[in-house]
Write a protein that binds this DNA or RNA. Structure first.
Lengths: 229, 229
DNA sequence: CGATCGCTTGATTCCGATCAACAGGAGTGG
DNA sequence: CCACTCCTGTTGATCGGAATCAAGCGATCG
């Protein structure tokens, strides 16, 4: 595990993402998190929490990117989600985390005590509803991802991933991916070689451009979407 | 789609599963569902609700088994979950269902209006918490399943599935599977042939017994668990 | 009894994994 | 500054597991 302090991490911290006003219905919990949440910073690859650790906090990404994953004994790893600025993670019903959370790149998060959120939810129905809505949204995303893992070919997976990330990160046709190929592979249930080869293939199809390995340009959304089943 | 009425379906209805007292904390919602819920029966393969239909109800299985799935345009199908007696399904945050639900075998369910549950949750914090807990439990299950889809070999998947089903259905070493091979395949992200072959292989390993194709006897849990990563 | 359905088994193919080598930067230290 | 290593990503060659194509088997049912 990388050692660090908030002060250290701050030295490499990115500027906080411009704050966008959330829809009114999300104010209750978010407002509270931003009010009482403590800021923490994590270096690239630092563990935010571990599998089986007590889930005493929940988190909101303010900058960077976070991966939720589990490592099997034999080294195989599955990444179940990436969380980007503005998103909540670490929410559990049970006492412990079931997966671990790690910073994909230098990242900062707001941290709120679970007990505080629970207390708030008990008093305020809107907060309770918000908490539920977050869990339900995660569920929806994960269910969609099962379709990818269970049904799709490598090319379809990579295409779906790029489309999805472009929408989430920039909304446009250019994306700067925060994660390395290995993370993409572990997210898509492929190997790093297959991800790399598939990217090259999409590039020669003229479906994407690859100015650098992390910088993706969507040149033919239609072709990519066609793959996306 | 199979045509049916409650009356027709009732003619083939199984006896209602023995009711087990749920833990106290689950009484609030369950009690209400059982109080105000209407019973409905569905033939094998009948659709309970469809992908993209408005999610006006939520359901509790009382007998049989239900699969949650999505069919892609090209015929590929992913089953994201099986629901057995006592379990809740059909709960959505958004207005519409994202997946469809079908009876695996002749089944009966209790149906409650979503609006009733929502109203109840607004008044009663325990109910709200229960609803959240259900969604969170689903999320947890689905996340575990992603590990299987993303990391595991065919043999590991089948072994994990059998162990899991044995625990959920009987708790012992013998299971009567309610679903056909095709459903298992679509749940595990494999083909029917691979599922069949793997079962035969586990049988020759003496890991399981197969008195009939649906009746499974776990002969060597340790060997199966070893596969389960 | 033929027909259909669910399942198994066999032969072959193919996609992605694995093994292996290499290329381009970034950082480090002489 | 260059030589060095480390890290990430790409590419090539080969292998293997699961998909696909195809046939057969037993049970249930009209």
């Amino acid at each position: 595990m990388l050692m660090q302090t908030v002060a250290q991490a701050n030295s490499s911290r990115q500027p906080v993402a411009a704050r966008r006003a959330p829809p009114a219905s999300t104010q209750a919990l978010f407002g509270s998190i931003e009010l009482i949440g403590a800021r923490m910073a994590f270096f690239r690859n630092a563990e935010i929490y571990g599998d089986d650790e007590p889930a005493n906090y929940l988190y909101k990404v303010t900058s960077g990117a976070v991966r939720i994953c589990k490592l099997l004994d034999d080294g195989r790893r599955q990444i179940t989600a990436f969380h980007l600025p503005g998103e909540i993670f670490g929410l559990e019903v049970g006492a412990d985390h079931r997966f671990s959370a790690e910073a994909v790149i230098d990242s900062s998060v707001l941290v709120i005590k679970r007990s505080a959120a629970v207390a708030l939810a008990a008093r305020d129905g809107d907060v309770a509803h918000q908490i539920w809505a977050y869990t339900a949204r995660d569920l929806q995303r994960v269910q969609e991802h099962m379709l990818l893992l269970g049904c799709m070919s490598a090319k379809e997976r990579v295409a779906a991933f790029l489309l999805h990330m472009a929408t989430r990160i920039s909304g446009g046709n250019e994306v700067e991916l925060p994660m390395p190929r290995q993370d993409i592979a572990d997210y898509l249930g492929l190997t790093i070689e297959t991800v790399s080869r598939t990217m090259t293939q999409l590039k020669s199809d003229a479906s994407i451009g690859l100015p650098t390995s992390r910088h993706i340009v969507l040149r033919n959304r239609a072709a990519l979407s066609r793959l996306d089943a």
